[in-house]
Write a protein that binds this DNA or RNA. Structure first.
Length: 477
RNA sequence: CGGGGUGUAGCGCAGUUGGCAGCGCACCGCGUUUGGGACGCGGGGGUCGGCGGUUCAAGUCCGCCCACCCCGACCA
């Protein structure tokens, strides 16, 4: 339960984030540094994310399976870039049942290797392809600096792993899943993400090409919210994933992988929250509507509660919570549910009983601006409309905010200024040296390059040489 | 791993010259309250981060260790 005000976002954004996560009871710190406990309210949000994504994965032909958490150390070492990328952050098990292990086991940081191993057993013929498997699970990466949801030692995610007969099919799959993530983020989470491909330095260890969706947080920093990798034949060669083609010739498969993690919860918090706390998009909110009965005495109570009961029976299509706690005042409850981001609040008191009304308050519009007096008639229809309006307004607001904070600097001086308070969409020559210099001088990294490069050619914002691509630069989480 | 900081009730903190371990919030009970963060009265709760030292006496002084937080180098 929350008793105090949150720090304002302007005065201390990261403290605002920590406090809102703790006070809204989304998560708590675990006894092990860098680990978190996802509390029921946070997990309920994650479950809604899972349900929505899972449905989209199934609709695109994928099936779920589960692979083990422990991976032989030697597996990680089979793909050169992969081991180089991940070895600094591995948790290694060396003892089992009191005995030193013959071969140390890795707690999976991601599952390309073990899934690759299994695919090489399962795939014999072009008739076995494509293989389209997703797994919901947890992984461990030993990070230096951690933040609840955004970067923890252990996190929950889904990882899709597919194998295909041709490079083109693998590339289509990679982009298809990028599109699935994009639609999910925009349509369900109301976060106007920007899809694109990563630079080589930001590429997944072992991938041929990495794509991501990038979201703008309330402090204008960028958050990579999901990734999709075209792994080429790198893992197929490392794990000997081969098939006989129709001409009876052995071919290496083309594989992909793609993932979205509990980090996305952090994206929702920071993309939409305000100084009062969370604002959750109706489609994903664990509680869509909170109903608060108001009465002063037993007489009012006995007239209010039947109406509350009747109306809540009409609202069973929604994720509804009736807050009938007697030890708290309505004022406290208003603030508490606002902090927790419930999109719509309904108040029912003696006046409403008398007038056949319900006071509705939209979370996305603070104060009186968000209040409407509803008629008790057809309450479900009105609630449905309001939730849809809120969902839309949240996307509109986030989109406007994003667009206000993306600029096209004319030169590097302008770039340096812009990057302190937004993103820069600039020409880049593609050299790792320019990218590194920009990062060193401004802390901004390349986030992604949109797939559709309609503006032709230009000159690099840093070195002035010819550039084929415009990319987004931003300070990132 | 480098720089800075903090460890006292669940949380936030105070604790003077070394002398009975406290305050606010939260929690429990009773009563009054309830349309934007209610109030009164009464309660429960402590290995003062750990180990060692000085002292009649250590939360307080000294030494070592540990943990956590913030800022930098790596990342979904």
């Amino acid at each position: 339960m929350s008793e105090e005000k949150l720090p304002s976002r302007a005065e201390n954004y990261s403290e605002w984030y920590n406090q809102v996560v703790l006070k809204a009871e989304m998560a708590d710190y675990a006894p092990v540094r860098g680990c978190m406990v996802v509390r029921p309210y946070g997990w309920a949000l994650w479950e809604n994310i899972q349900a929505s994504l899972d449905q989209r994965f199934k609709a695109t032909g994928h099936v779920n399976a589960a692979f083990p958490m422990l991976i032989p150390k030697s597996f990680l070492e089979k793909e050169k870039e992969h081991v180089e990328g991940f070895s600094p952050e591995l948790a290694v098990v060396t003892i089992g049942g009191g005995q030193e292990l013959e071969e140390p086991l890795i707690v999976r940081p991601t599952s390309e290797t073990i899934i690759g191993h299994m695919y090489s057993k399962w795939i014999k013929s072009y008739r076995d392809l494509p293989i389209l498997i997703n797994q919901w699970g947890n992984v461990v990466r030993w990070e230096m600096r951690t933040r609840l949801f955004l970067r923890t030692l252990e996190f929950y995610w889904q990882e899709g792993h597919t194998a295909h007969a041709s490079e083109q099919e693998a590339q289509e799959e990679t982009l298809r899943m990028l599109e699935v993530y994009t639609r999910f983020a925009i349509d369900e989470a109301a976060i106007p993400v920007i899809p694109g491909h990563k630079s080589d330095s930001e590429r997944f260890a072992g991938a041929q090409r990495t794509y991501s969706i990038e979201a703008m947080m309330g402090d204008t920093r960028a958050l990579q919210s999901a990734t999709s990798h075209n792994l080429g034949q790198n893992f197929a060669r490392a794990f000997d994933i081969r098939y006989l083609d129709p001409n009876n010739e052995l071919q290496y498969c083309w594989t992909t992988s793609w993932g979205l993690s509990t980090r996305f919860v952090g994206a929702i918090i920071m993309a939409h929250g305000d100084d009062q706390g969370l604002i959750l998009p109706p489609r994903l909110a664990p509680i869509q509507v909170v109903l608060i009965p108001i009465f002063r005495n037993d007489e009012e109570k006995s007239s209010v509660l039947p109406v509350v009961e009747r109306l809540s029976a009409e609202l069973t299509d929604f994720r509804l919570r009736v807050d009938d706690r007697t030890e708290l005042t309505p004022g406290f409850k208003f603030n508490d549910w606002e902090m927790r981001g419930v999109p719509l609040r309904l108040e029912i008191g003696p006046k409403d009983v008398q007038n056949q009304t319900v006071m509705a308050a939209r979370r996305d519009k603070p104060g009186k601006a968000g209040k409407t007096l509803l008629n008790q008639d057809q309450i479900a229809r009105q609630v449905k409309e309001l939730l849809e309006e809120i969902q839309k307004a949240m996307l509109d607001r986030a989109t406007a905010f994003r667009d206000e904070h993306i600029h096209n600097p004319k030169n590097y001086d302008e770039f340096k200024d812009i990057i302190t308070r937004g993103w820069a969409f600039s020409w880049w020559c593609g050299s790792a040296a320019c990218e590194a210099k920009i990062k060193e001088e401004t802390k901004a990294t390349t986030r992604c390059a949109p797939i559709d490069q309609s503006e032709g050619k230009g000159t690099c914002i840093y070195c002035g040489k010819p550039a084929n691509e415009k990319v987004y630069f931003a300070r990132a989480y």
